[in-house]
Structures are given as structure tokens and as C-alpha cells.
Design a protein around this nucleic acid. Structure first.
Lengths: 221, 221
DNA sequence: GATACACTGTACTGTACGGTACGCAAATGC
DNA sequence: GCATTTGCGTACCGTACAGTACAGTGTATC
């Protein structure tokens, strides 16, 4: 309220820039570890060095700091997502499996997961931040799959009524159980191998469904 | 610590019983509305009548009150779940659709959803409560579906490798998108009709998958 | 090397809230 | 109707924490 110096990196010298980095890093670490409410500004300053005054100078207030941290995080995730494609030149099973595994790995990343949890609890307070995360994270993932499905349908490999809906379903199948378990039973261990077999099984289910094929043809080997 | 009078309804007269009810109701309402941290004991007493002293008398501390509220809530959900079956005497498509719709309706219930959100944020603090919710809620739902799938597989209607995993996948397909959207974009409206068509489409996808059938037989009507 | 400026440390303010102590009043039971 | 239990109101304590004020110190720029 006093000055506009609390905006985005206002003419900061080399020292200030370093402090800003340190503050952002410390804040990210602590927010992720303890959540927004339970992280105190003193904690952050303690870890980052410097003083609370600097923090207020640079970020305005606690929420401003949080916003800055999350925006940076979003940028990082965005880059990570850019690497994930479903390679259409392989068969559907291989393509979906490799994509699914990559997607699930990303979600198992402690950092990303913690951000997810924080945003869930903070979504009311910061809808814009939550929305941005949603768009660059889950939404682009779904879009990638949808694109692949559309492409595979066009080339006659798959038969997909509604690619977007099918993509949602696919992502849900491979992620939900793990996400919900980790959200609600945080102390339960995550079994990486189990996750992988789950992804593979999900892909087969997604491809073939559970209905008895109407023409008996393939005996299970 | 001082006395054991803070346990479960210790010899409470009719007046005390009424207060306890009022406190529980008020607490439930406020916890659901504002979350655990942001609900103050004064808020609760304000709404329920009585005094903080009574609250401490009956529930020991804030966490005790929360626990009591959640246990009651769990009881309610448990009853609600008892009503949901997949009727095996209908065809798979009808059975799964009706079960899915019922399950999704339950999740769209404001009350239940709010509890879900609170437990996600409070899971670290109160693992036992979260676990109980998980077991009587999602887990029994999945079990119901798994039972149905097993049954349908045994009678030759469906071909299911791993009923439990398939049940997880099915529930995930029909719930995830809605849950995640509501968790992270709380202000986005929920379109009931869209949810219903999503469930129907998911059931079809779950039954038939997306792979081109190997024997050309049925032309889509 | 004087000047302006940006970072730092610290001390302070205000407030919100969980929890406690205690005296009082109204039920409840005999 | 008297005694005891049980709930009620209030005042109080300790603490945690966001935010502010300010004086001091290092650091660039001329």
C-alpha cells in the first residue's frame, strides 16, 4: 500500500537478486513441506537469510510470495510437460503405456505432488493460481492423449467416439487410485512396481474393455 | 489430562445431551464451510449456544470435537453406501450405469464433498479418521463393483482379469474428472447433465474399450 | 570520498485464538 | 427444600504470527 516497490523485481541490484532467489527457494521448500498456513515468514527468512523487511519489500505480503513461488513452479511443470508425447509411430498399446508411465512418474514427484496438495487446500483463496496449474498440468496431459486418440482413430487404428472424454478416462484410470491414496493416506507407502503393472493393466483395459468379445477368436496364451 | 470427563458423552443429562448435539451440528456446519484451521471455537459456540467451557468439558479439545464430528459423518456415509448395489440381474451396461450414477450423485453431495476436502488437508494430522473415511467410502464402493465384476465374470457375461483393478479403473473413470475439477476449481459450476452423459460414455468405454474389434460384425446404429 | 540507495536486524504493535480458572445458576435427584 | 451435579459466562493467560518502523550498514555511482 505504501509504494509500488513491492511488485515484480523492481530494479533489484545483484545482491537483491540473490536474496530474492534465496527467499523464493526457501519459501518453495517450506510451503511444499508444511503448507501455506503453517509456514511462517520467520521460518522462510531463517532459511533464506536476510530479513523479513526485505521479504516485504520484494513480495508485498505473504500471499504475494506464495503467488511468486507458484508461478515459478508452474513454469517448471510446463517445461516438464512439454517433453511428454504419445509417440504415434508405435502401436497404441506401447504408445499409451509409455505416455501413461511418464505421466504417473511426474505425479509421483514429491514436489509436484506437494504443490497439488497445497493448491487443493488453497484453491478458494487463489483461484487464478490453481487454474493456471490445472491448465498447464492435467489439462495439457489430457489434450496430448486426446490428440493421439484422434490421430489413431483417423488412421483406423482405434475406434473412439469422443477422444476428449476417452482421454479423461484414460488419465483417470492410471492416476486416480494413486492420487487419492496419497492425498488421504499419506503414510501409506507407494509401490512403484505395483504402479507400473497397474498402468499396463489399465492400458489393456482401456483398449479392450471387459465385455466378452462377440466372436470367439483368440485363446488366451 | 485433568479428568476423564472429556471422553464419550460421560453421563450427560438431557440438557447436556442437547448441548452436545448443538455443538456437534454447529461444528459440522462450520468445519465443512471453513475447514478445520479457520473455524474457531468461539465461532462454534456462537452458533451452538452454550460456552467454550462446556465444549472442553465434552470433547477435551478442538481435535476431539473434530474427531467426534467426523465419526458421526462417517456413520452417515456408511448408511448411504449400504444402499448402493450393482444389481446383477440387469445387464452389465444397465447395472454399471445405475451404480455409477448413484456413486457420482453421492460424491456431488456438498456435505460429503466438503468432508473429502477437509480430510485431504487434515490427513497428516488425523490419519485414523482419514483412513476410516477411506474404508467406508471409496473402498466399499470399489469392493461393490469388484464383487459385481467377479460375479459377472463367473457367469460368463464379462471377461475380467483382475476384478479389483478393473473396479478401481471404473470408479476412477466416472469420478476423477469431477472430483479434481471441484477440488481445484471450486468456482467452476458442475453440469449435472454432462456428468450423466459422462457416466454413460464411461460405461460403454469400460465395456468395449477403444480397440478396433478384430472381427467386423456390428455396424454402429 | 560523498551521496544516494538497497538490504539487514531488531524491536514493537496489534490481534487472534486455544486453552484454563473460577464463580454462578439452573437442573436433577433425594 | 436441600445437596450435588452439570452446564454457563467471563475473564484471563500465553503464545504465535503478520505486518510495521526505524536505525544502521554495506555497496554502488559519480
Amino acid at each position: 500500500m505504501s509504494g509500488e516497490s513491492s511488485r515484480n523485481a523492481p530494479m533489484l541490484g545483484p545482491r537483491g537478486q540473490a536474496r530474492r532467489r534465496a527467499l523464493l527457494d526457501a519459501a518453495a521448500k517450506l510451503f511444499v513441506e508444511k503448507g501455506f498456513e503453517k509456514t511462517t515468514l520467520s521460518d522462510i527468512v531463517h532459511l533464506a537469510g536476510g530479513s523479513r523487511a526485505t521479504l516485504y519489500e520484494q513480495f508485498g505480503d505473504k500471499e504475494g510470495l506464495f503467488r511468486a513461488v507458484m508461478e515459478e513452479n508452474n513454469r517448471r511443470i510446463s517445461e516438464q510437460m512439454a517433453a511428454a508425447h504419445a509417440n504415434s509411430w508405435r502401436g497404441p498399446e506401447a504408445a499409451l503405456t509409455s505416455f501413461g508411465l511418464r505421466f504417473v512418474w511426474a505425479l509421483m514427484d514429491e514436489q509436484i505432488f506437494a504443490v497439488l496438495r497445497i493448491l487443493i487446500t488453497e484453491a478458494e483463496r487463489l483461484p487464478a493460481v490453481a487454474e493456471a496449474f490445472w491448465e498447464i498440468g492435467p489439462d495439457t496431459g489430457v489434450q496430448r492423449v486426446a490428440d493421439y486418440l484422434r490421430h489413431a482413430a483417423a488412421s483406423g487404428q482405434l475406434r473412439v467416439e469422443d477422444p476428449l472424454m476417452a482421454a479423461h478416462a484414460f488419465i483417470a484410470m492410471i492416476t486416480t487410485n494413486m492420487i487419492m491414496r496419497r492425498l488421504m493416506l499419506p503414510q501409506a507407502p507407494v509401490d512403484m512396481a505395483a504402479v507400473e503393472t497397474m498402468v499396463r493393466a489399465s492400458v489393456r483395459l482401456f483398449l479392450d474393455g471387459v465385455r466378452m468379445p462377440s466372436c470367439p477368436q483368440e485363446a488366451t496364451p
